[in-house]
Design a protein around this nucleic acid. Structure first.
Length: 427
DNA sequence: TCTGGGGTCCTAGGACCC
DNA sequence: TCTGGGGTCCTAGGACCC
């Protein structure tokens, strides 16, 4: 059996942990730049606050009902996420836990049919709550896709289900599939949901499970669709992934806190993001051989299609893969000259590093001088200082010192668990 | 005035090879 | 007068996830 353990309203729960007076009160957490709503407590949901909706549209509703509002505090969420995942690994053994996102993990419960799955689920839930203060929902079923269906049901009816739903019998699975709209299935997004209901009269997960693999291949993205249907029928097609593998791409992208017009500021931003991305790169001991940048101009039809405002990008391939910030910044800011258009108003920019290889096996060429060790020592010294002191104490001059374009973050709570000077105070 | 920031996998099609 | 067949590798883009 497989399971998924999912933290309830994770970011909101993290905030409440240190402000218990907010229990049972509506809470929301905003995305970077205080742009969108990315987490809502149950109370906020029932007030009608929309997920991923723009904050400024929801503001009247939020103010009317006195909803507690927070900017994202990723230091806090990251630390609590780590605690939840460690707890889960201690209960089930590290090899049986696949961390899937900041607030979710798949678990492998083995194939022993004698177990009382519900009890196991309840035990997991209780332990995580006791050890970390975070409430989770658990879905348990024969496959990953079905466990996600179970988890959905657990969340829909929290009290009745005690946040644990087990699908361990044929009838239960069929009933669950019949009660799940096709668009709620893990792996069916907006495009496919529309296509399935409009063109194929497939409305529920059950309808979809009745389709043939050939049909899925034709209409649901090839092999991906075949796997999905197999899993709905209880046949394994998505195995547990071992170990967190190294990332294949590393990106740092941000909206600006205000409109940006000058090439100087775009270059500062690109240099800053490159430094950030390079740091992530070194953390996983990789080096990149391709660097891409993009900028997004303020769109004409901003209201209709804000997300896909025209994005212009370009990339360059480096002669040798590297993880040194200065070797990445230089080509990155040179790329800005290629795409910057004078007089344009920019909203966003980003840097992506790809073609990642292990740091140790960098393919050199005849004409490069090997000064690698010195560079690596320098970079790790900088990383260490920045890690200990935080807030990028050491930065590259091209990153700028004022950074007027930085994102807004006006309602962030203290980083209670990861900064000495922001520790929770008991008076 | 104000709409996030990461990632993954897969496929089609072009370039190129013999 | 006549122009194959079978590969590989790479990239762009589309779908999805949280």
């Amino acid at each position: 059996m497989k399971g998924i353990v999912d933290c309830n309203s994770f970011y909101c729960s993290c905030e409440r942990l240190f402000q218990p007076h907010l229990d049972n009160k509506p809470v929301v957490v905003l995305s970077n730049n205080d742009g969108c709503i990315v987490s809502r407590s149950d109370e906020a949901k029932s007030l009608g606050v929309k997920m991923a909706g723009p904050y400024f549209l929801a503001k009247p509703l939020i103010e009317e009902h006195n909803v507690a509002t927070f900017s994202s505090n990723y230091n806090l969420y990251g630390d609590l996420s780590w605690r939840v995942m460690e707890t889960l690994k201690m209960i089930l053994g590290e090899e049986n836990v696949e961390v899937y996102s900041v607030d979710e993990a798949f678990i492998d419960l083995g194939e022993n049919g004698e177990n009382d799955w519900k009890q196991i689920g309840l035990q997991i839930r209780k332990t995580i709550e006791q050890w970390t203060g975070i409430m989770v929902s658990v879905g348990i079923a024969p496959t990953k896709v079905l466990s996600k269906v179970a988890n959905h049901l657990a969340k829909k009816d929290k009290r009745a289900a005690e946040c644990v739903v087990v699908l361990d019998a044929y009838e239960k699975i069929i009933a669950a599939l019949q009660n799940t709209p096709v668009g709620e299935i893990w792996g069916v997004g907006r495009q496919y949901a529309k296509k399935l209901t409009d063109m194929h009269a497939v409305f529920t997960a059950y309808d979809l499970s009745q389709k043939s693999p050939e049909w899925a291949h034709r209409n649901l993205g090839g092999v991906v669709g075949i796997r999905l249907i197999k899993e709905l029928r209880g046949e394994h097609a998505n195995e547990m992934k071992d170990e967190l593998k190294e990332k294949k791409m590393i990106a740092t992208t941000r909206m600006f806190g205000r409109n940006v017009k000058s090439i100087i500021e775009i270059k500062e931003a690109i240099a800053t993001y490159t430094a950030k991305a390079a740091e992530k790169l070194r953390r996983q001991y990789s080096a990149a051989n391709t660097i891409s940048i993009f900028v997004v101009a303020k769109g004409q039809n901003h209201n209709i299609d804000f997300r896909h405002g025209e994005s212009i990008g370009t990339y360059t391939r480096l002669p040798i893969a590297t993880s040194s910030t200065h070797e990445l910044i230089k080509p990155a800011i040179e790329l800005v000259d290629k795409i910057f258009v004078h007089g344009t108003i920019y909203k966003k920019a980003g840097v992506m590093l790809s073609g990642l290889v292990p740091d140790k096996t960098i393919q050199g060429n005849l004409f490069t001088e090997e000064k690698h060790n010195g560079k690596r020592l320098l970079m790790s010294a900088i990383d260490n200082v920045n890690f200990a002191m935080r807030d990028d104490v050491i930065k590259f001059a091209t990153s700028g010192t004022k950074r007027n374009w930085k994102m807004r973050m006006e309602m962030r709570s203290p980083r209670y668990t990861s900064r000495w000077d922001e520790l929770y105070k008991v008076s």
